[in-house]
Design a protein around this nucleic acid. Structure first.
Lengths: 345, 345
DNA sequence: TATTAACACTACAACGTTTTCGTGAACTTC
DNA sequence: GAAGTTCACGAAAACGTTGTAGTGTTAATA
């Protein structure tokens, strides 16, 4: 077992001082060319690589960014992680991730653990529980301690920090309009309760699209579900509501859902009713994930560009860490949504 | 902005030495009760939390484990990450992740970056390119340097380290048997080329099941595809092969695929042929992910228990790091697969 | 020949901890 | 009253690195 070698050991081996080795490795002109080359050759030979922990301690900063997300087995969040990792890698940073599991308490603990240690800044999306509780002390404290925080997707105006958001309202507007453009007039919306900011915004987009097209609002065509992790409990309830809605409103000719899971449930019920997608009912949903892509028929979706969000967030955070942003005030970047047309519309 | 306070600052504030503060915080009996309490009160007041970097440097080890996976936007790997993160959290470790994107070069670079720094050990799954190249020098070197490595899922006998694997062969055997048990006799297999170890093992399981049931092998019923990331290119090709196979072998009454994507492609083609699932053709696939769960009909699958794999791997690695394993020889843990029965069979 | 400059290198402090080894002062013990 | 013991605390080294401030030797200058 070859343990890692330190500068001190190299120095001893070469019969020079530690400083000489350090300077040689940095190609300092203070050291003669011969010595430099000799040291570098030895370093290569022994496979010397600097100890980043010592460096971090010395420089009082680490090249590590912390990502706190509610869930990783989730297409959108995984995409964001992918984007973050990509730029982190390019810019020489490490990514440490931690999952809140949609729990407020875990989010707080994770944040404290990270802040205790090796993290230079955070990229995070709030857990549902945090949004519900509206308790953001842990984030305020972290910012107070001088760590930059970039919030994405699930953000909140009370927190004064950089943000990367998708234009949820516009995405929903596009999706609804897309249905209207196909001649659909009776569009059912499946969304979440309003405390989930993205659900609320998407609902707004839907309403706006109807308004712009002068389609009167029918509240019977809006289904709001409690948004928990327990899809096994929620979905049957949702499907029932949907059945009722379809029975009471046989004129429904389009459905827009705020996520893929709801769309999958809708597909199932539509099939039950022996209706055809897209002829009888067109279907669009938010999130361009695997469910939509591999469904039969493949679903038209609103692509949120998760990877792009991750990229923007990481660049924003690293720019802050490296003081590359003159602007002291928080910046909010908006990533546009885009309709992905497939066979369901 | 309240910067984090250090022991030194606390000591100055209290008019005692650094040692006294450190000992007080650790409740050393060497320090008088009064002093201890005073120090602790101050520490709480100033929200003192030890600097983990300094600790790591002192102790020459970090409480961080590195996870290197080919892809995070992937149900199985995300599940594993979730499992790893869960036990890491419980046992006081951080998780830093890095994505190889199925690239050999990125895998090597990532590993070196990690090894340079804050990582105590690795949990990883090899990239497809690495498997193809059969070049494992980076892993051998890491192990040589004394860092424990736990390989999962995509492992290789040439690397002598702890492993956590799913019983791919047994899973495939179960799946094929499951079809046979439904009275199906002409079972099509969609798999990958043999250099992907899991593909090869699953093919073996399929063959074994046929053999055990005394069903003669028909090579026309095995489709092997190149397994790349470019599903947009692969899938149409695959679907074509599948159409040909179905035309040439109209007796096909069951399909087993080694992943969900292939199953989604199969569903599409089956629908094209106006065949019913499961009456005309039953369908089972590996990977119990969202596609199977939300497909219509929901697919029967082989659950690989990704989270469980992550849990086992993390416990194994941390046990090694903490010398809780007397056994110096590598350990291989096998996580059993399980058939999830749904409506496609 | 004495002063200075350039060169090539070394010593040392610092980053924040922990821990071993002192060290005075008060108190026992015979 | 001398010697030992306990108590409560402090000094300093160590982890690996960097950068500032020396230091000694040789060469150039006046």
């Amino acid at each position: 077992m070859k343990k890692k070698i330190t500068i001190k050991q190299l120095a001893a081996e070469l019969g020079v001082s530690v400083s000489t080795v350090s300077k040689s490795l940095h190609d300092s002109p203070e050291i003669s060319k011969e010595t430099r080359e000799k040291v570098q050759a030895f370093a290569k030979l022994y496979n010397y690589r600097p100890n980043n922990i010592a460096l971090s301690l010395k420089n009082k900063k680490t090249k590590t960014i912390g990502v706190i997300i509610p869930e990783v087995v989730h297409h959108f969040f995984a995409m964001v992680v992918k984007g973050v990792e990509q730029v982190a890698m390019e810019r020489g940073y490490n990514v440490v991730i931690s999952l809140s599991n949609e729990s407020f308490e875990k989010e707080v603990i994770n944040m404290e653990t990270f802040a205790d240690s090796l993290i230079g800044g955070f990229i995070m999306s709030l857990s549902k529980e945090t949004l519900k509780k509206q308790d953001y002390h842990h984030i305020h404290q972290t910012i107070e301690e001088g760590m930059p925080v970039v919030l994405f997707d699930r953000t909140v105006p009370e927190i004064n920090c950089d943000k990367v958001i998708v234009n949820d309202e516009q995405g929903a507007l596009l999706a609804t309009k897309h249905l209207i453009d196909q001649g659909k007039k009776n569009i059912l919306l499946i969304t979440t309760e309003d405390y989930i900011s993205v659900g609320r915004l998407r609902t707004q987009g839907y309403l706006k699209a109807l308004q712009e097209a002068n389609i009167p609002l029918n509240n019977g065509l809006i289904i709001k579900t409690e948004d928990t992790n327990r899809s096994d409990i929620i979905l049957p309830l949702l499907e029932n509501e949907l059945r009722t809605a379809l029975k009471q409103n046989p004129e429904i000719d389009g459905i827009f859902t705020v996520n893929e899971i709801y769309a999958a449930a809708a597909m199932r019920v539509i099939r039950e009713f022996n209706l055809n997608i897209p002829n009888d009912i067109s279907l669009v949903c938010f999130t361009d994930g695997v469910i939509s892509k591999y469904a039969t028929p493949p679903l038209s979706t609103v692509n949120q560009h998760g990877t792009q969000i991750g990229i923007e967030a990481a660049n924003l955070l690293i720019d802050r860490l490296e003081n590359k942003i003159e602007q002291p005030k928080p910046i909010t970047k908006v990533v546009a949504c885009e309709i992905v047309r497939r066979d369901s519309t």
